[in-house]
């Protein structure tokens, strides 16, 4: 028996919106501590990882660990039948569920849907706990804007960190450009830019993955970029009171 009730159903919709461009079919894992999801994009260059803690739900019960294989596209079709202010409850009865039930509740209506599940034997990757040598926290819409703008100039974006801050740069056929984001300790937390740089990094990424993921910026006003040289970058959106949505992206390397 599994039941998880989102107080703010709109949050669940934003999470699905953020990952739908990157992953097609996912295994949703539920256990006593909460819900998690880990899936690679079709090219296996990026890895999406969601973690939602049971304490963040209005109601949460999961007697036995469950794996529910679902198509993100079909999940979206069901969620499109809900309002952004609805409370959303996920529920299954059996131990080996073949469907996942959804209840959408608002002041004046209640809806019930069932999504057919599928069995997906997806490889799960072990992401080692890593001490990243550069960790940058910045406004999420700023990061989104930079990736979108520089992505117009070149398909690869460089990220260089230093004690002064973080620099995004592109060198394309049409020319080149760079954007340096300065550290600021403004009292408005959503506008703060913080850099912890033990070791500076200089990495290059395919910017299309950033732009496919940038709807996740609706989840949090700040984004955390964790980097180590020649390691995948981690883009993390903290989901207030619930957990986090992360994108791990393999860097491009000069052969």
């Amino acid at each position: 028996m599994f039941e998880a009730k989102f107080e703010d159903g709109g949050l669940f919709k934003k999470i699905v919106e953020a990952i739908k461009e990157l992953v097609k079919n996912v295994n949703l894992e539920a256990n006593g501590t909460g819900i998690s999801l880990q899936a690679m994009d079709t090219s296996h260059v990026a890895l999406v990882a969601l973690q939602l803690n049971e304490k963040g739900f209005k109601k949460y019960r999961c007697e036995k660990s469950l794996t529910m294989g679902l198509s993100i596209e079909n999940l979206q079709k069901i969620l499109k039948c809900s309002g952004n202010d609805d409370q959303i409850t996920l529920r299954t009865q059996d131990e080996e569920p073949t469907t996942l039930s959804f209840t959408f509740e608002s002041k004046n209506r209640i809806s019930e849907f069932q999504l057919n599940l599928m069995s997906l034997d997806q490889e799960q990757l072990g992401v080692p706990d890593t001490e990243y040598s550069s960790v940058v926290r910045m406004p999420s819409n700023e990061f989104t804007k930079i990736c979108r703008e520089l992505g117009n100039i070149n398909e690869a974006i460089g990220i260089e960190t230093s004690k002064e801050g973080i620099k995004f740069y592109v060198k394309g056929d049409i020319g080149e450009g760079q954007v340096s984001v300065k550290i600021n300790d403004t009292e408005k937390p959503e506008e703060r830019v913080e850099c912890e740089v033990d070791e500076p990094v200089n990495l290059s990424f395919a910017v299309r993955y950033f732009n496919l993921f940038n709807k996740a910026s609706a989840l949090s006003s700040q984004v955390i970029l964790s980097m180590s040289q020649d390691q995948p970058l981690v883009i993390e959106y903290i989901i207030e009171e619930m957990g986090s949505l992360k994108l791990y992206l393999a860097p491009k390397i000069n052969d």
């Binding site: 690679m40 090219s43 296996h44 260059v45 990026a46 890895l47 490889e123 799960q124 990757l125 072990g126 992401v127 080692p128 690869a156 290059s204 395919a206 390691q231 995948p232 791990y248 992206l249 393999a250 860097p251 491009k252 390397i253 000069n254 052969d255």
Partner: peptide, 14 residues
């Protein structure tokens, strides 16, 4: 020129 490795190169299958 640059290569784009997959994420599997960095993280092992569990």
């Amino acid at each position: 020129n640059t290569q784009q490795p997959t994420i599997n190169r960095f993280y092992d299958n569990q």
